[in-house]
Design a binder for these strands. Structure first.
Lengths: 98, 98
DNA sequence: TAAAGCACTACAAAATCAGTAGTATACTTT
DNA sequence: AAAGTATACTACTGATTTTGTAGTGCTTTA
């Protein structure tokens, strides 16, 4: 369910305001790339929700899913668009420390 | 339900990641102060949830509720701590415009 | 004192999320 | 080639959260 608004903040919130979304991004910025790593870093997230969120991030062009030959499973990487979120995450961290 | 983590980002997300929270702050930054104004600006929020969120923001020290004599109802204002969120909201707006 | 505006509260229905268990697929070993 | 294993999911039930509508109570104004 959306917020029914046409505003850049609403648009951003539509995606980033979802539960666990910002923490998933934190993990990605900290260097987690695999599903199992993300799950470990976000100990209480349910697997189905993690899957759902990763799909949402992929659809929004914030991450890409890569499958490498010769290795099991897949890896998730921030796209350039995703990396633009870094200042926002940092802001959040600064504010959270107060 | 918390995220069960001890990290400034998780702490910030605990409050700001809740549904409607960032948009309520946007309204406050844009100059809405009364319950009815907020409700109008956030057309799809339900009154009970708006009440709940305002209480959470008040408890977190981000806003204060003032009752002025000689006027009907109350008004909500950002505290200095709340105003520190401005760069974060601006970041969100910038990112949302991309 | 009556009327009206404003700020809520109550509650059922709908949507979302949590937690656990089970499945699919690709690699690795035998 | 067959069996085993690691990884990444999907399915499902019950709990929690949010929505949407209706109604209540205080405060000011007439």
């Amino acid at each position: 369910m959306g917020y029914g608004q046409f505003c850049p903040i609403a648009k951003a919130t539509e995606l980033l305001g979802e539960r666990w979304m910002l923490l998933i991004l934190r993990e990605l910025f900290l260097g987690s790339h695999r599903y199992s790593e993300l799950q470990r870093g976000l100990s209480r997230i349910s697997p189905s929700l993690l899957t759902k969120r990763l799909k949402e991030l992929e659809q929004a062009g914030i991450i890409v899913r890569k499958t490498e030959r010769g290795r099991k499973g897949h890896e998730y990487y921030l796209t350039p668009a995703g990396k633009e979120l870094q200042p926002l995450i940092e802001n959040l961290a600064v504010w959270g420390m107060c």
